[in-house]
Amino acid sequence: MKVEATIGKNMQPLLRVENLVKRYAKQSLAGTPEEFLALDGVSFTVFPGTTLAVVGESGSGKSTLAACLACLESPTAGSIWFAGREIAKLEERASRQIRPQIQVIFQDPASSLNPRWSVMEVLAEPLILQRKFTREEIDRGISSLLERVGLSPDIVERSPTELSGGQRQRLAIARALALEPKLLILDEALSALDCSVQAQIANLLVELQGSLEMTYLFITHDLAMAAHLADEIAVMDRGRIVEQGQAQKILKQPEQETTRQLLAAVPRLTLVPPLLEQ
């Protein structure tokens, strides 16, 4: 198992989250102030080159977690250690160095891709911003990114809106890769896609993890896909991690009711016989 191997080597975790709390103030209809704990003391570690899947229903706090890790929200309390540095309390300038190393892929890439830009411009932007490449290097960079995510080079002139859902998600991954991130947060990144396209993108993610030693935080409500992609699974419910462990163990011996419910709710094609003859 990869997890044990890395722990055995006494490697530094890439990401360590300790007792993370995110509190939102809101007011009830009666007007009395209420507190809403989106994250209620979340702790975990992720080692380089591994995948942690965070599963839970909507409202369990998994998206808030993603937002905190991506520096889109600042946590109320707790600490986030990334590559040995505490990023929750970083200064603006230092966080600008760290931020590119953590990239997020959202459920709907259309909303994060400028529809007026061409695919070429979408991919060129992060390369240009790094200010260390010549024009030729950028062109070469774009074609290698496209190749890496399995997009054909003849789409560079198109706008993201002209692409299919799967192509857009590949483009979003390519843009994230342009910044050479260490951690990719996949926030329901497969949920809106068709089954066959999900499989394609899942394969791409596996491939990239193999070739680039990428680390994933895979946030989803799809336990089946989580089990397929992840080394470890953390189950969230109402802002807490209620159960965490090796993917296989969570699937076979779930200890918490939440996990059992999530497992029971996964639709299965039970009628299909094993596909070994393929």
Binding site: A199, L269, Q278
Partner: peptide, 8 residues
């Protein structure tokens, strides 16, 4: 059908 993860 085959493209759906069957870990379960």
């Amino acid at each position: 059908f085959h493209s759906i993860p069957t870990v379960f």
